[in-house]
Amino acid sequence: MSKKLFALLLSCVFLFSLSLLGCSKSNAPAAQILKVGSDTTYAPFGFQDEKTKEYVGFDIDLIKAVAKQAGYEVQLQSMNFDGLIPALDSGSIDVAISDMTITDERAKKVNFSKPYYKAGLSIVVAAGNTSIQNFKDLEGKKVAVSIGSTGADEAHKIKNAKIVEFNAIAEAFLELKAGGVDAVINDSPVNEYYILHEGSKTAKIVGEPLNSEDLGIATAKSNPELGKKLDKALAEIKANGSYETIYLKWFGKKPPQ
């Protein structure tokens, strides 16, 4: 065999090897996309970072960790809280995570994961308000809530109260600051985050939390297998320490056992 023919064969082998390598890369299974809906006005669960403009928060980090564990990549969609369950029902999103309390009424429409956080409702009032100390004192008052929330459900039970519903809880806090309402009823961790980062001089939390509520990741009734996969992944990140790391990052303490 001539040197020229040998060199030609060697080049062919090299090019063939490269083509196989390229095929192996292109044929590698890509992670499936998980369309996730979230109301990104609920800091610290989900909100938009002012500097980066990216959506961040406990729920955002959690669903990304759960999705990765289950073999998915997250495609996040920001939407109003009351639109999450209809979006699941229509198939425009696969998952909803947004400080969503597991309730019997919601469980009729969607499937919930095992609880991933325990919350409760509390009252926020103006810093100088001394007339409201507990839920009983809200009778006859003007109360702001987020539409479709458990806070709204409880507010509607208050005798003679005028309930003002907002698409985003941030709007309710702004209305309180402006003096348009007497109080805001909302999830305790969101209220605490607001007081700590924005409302420390203008607002305060009063009374004891009304109740204890479990938060869950919601999936469509038509896709029970996805719910099972996410439940399994949630249990795995709790076991491997990832959940605790995320919890510490956003709440500054370890999750309750």
Rank of each mutant, 00 (worst) to 15 (best):
T52W: 05
T52F: 09
T52H: 10
E54D: 15
Y55I: 12
G57A: 08
G57R: 07
G57Q: 01
F58T: 01
D59A: 04
D59K: 07
D59L: 02
D59Y: 07
I60S: 03
D61M: 07
D61F: 09
L62T: 03
L62F: 07
L62N: 04
I63L: 05
I63Y: 07
K64H: 14
A65Q: 05
A65E: 08
K68Y: 11
K68I: 03
K68E: 12
Q69T: 12
Q69A: 12
Q69D: 10
Q69K: 15
A70N: 06
G71I: 03
Y72V: 04
E73S: 12
E73C: 08
E73N: 14
E73M: 11
V74K: 08
L76I: 00
Q77N: 14
M79S: 02
M79R: 10
M79K: 10
N80Q: 13
N80G: 11
N80F: 14
F81M: 01
F81L: 11
D82L: 11
G83A: 10
G83V: 06
L84S: 00
A87P: 06
L88C: 02
S90P: 03
G91N: 00
G91C: 10
G91Y: 01
S92A: 13
S92V: 15
I93D: 00
I93M: 01
A96T: 04
A96G: 09
I97T: 04
I97L: 02
D99M: 11
D99R: 10
D99S: 15
M100D: 07
M100F: 07
M100G: 09
T101C: 07
T101F: 08
I102P: 00
I102W: 03
T103F: 04
T103D: 05
E105V: 09
R106E: 08
A107Y: 04
K108M: 05
K108P: 04
K108S: 09
K109W: 07
K109T: 10
V110T: 08
V110S: 01
N111H: 09
N111V: 10
S113M: 04
S113T: 11
S113C: 00
S113E: 05
S113I: 03
S113P: 05
Y117Q: 00
K118W: 11
K118S: 14
G120Y: 02
G120N: 01
G120L: 02
S122H: 07
I123F: 03
V124G: 03
V124C: 06
V124Y: 00
A126M: 09
A127F: 10
A127W: 09
G128K: 12
T130H: 14
T130R: 13
I132K: 04
I132M: 06
I132L: 07
I132F: 06
N134E: 09
F135A: 11
K136A: 15
K136R: 14
D137A: 13
D137S: 11
D137R: 03
L138E: 08
L138D: 02
E139V: 13
K141N: 07
V143G: 00
V143T: 03
V143A: 02
V143Q: 02
S146P: 01
I147N: 12
G148D: 07
G148W: 08
S149T: 15
S149C: 08
T150S: 13
G151P: 06
A152E: 15
A152C: 11
A152S: 14
A152H: 10
A152D: 13
D153W: 14
E154I: 15
E154Q: 15
A155I: 09
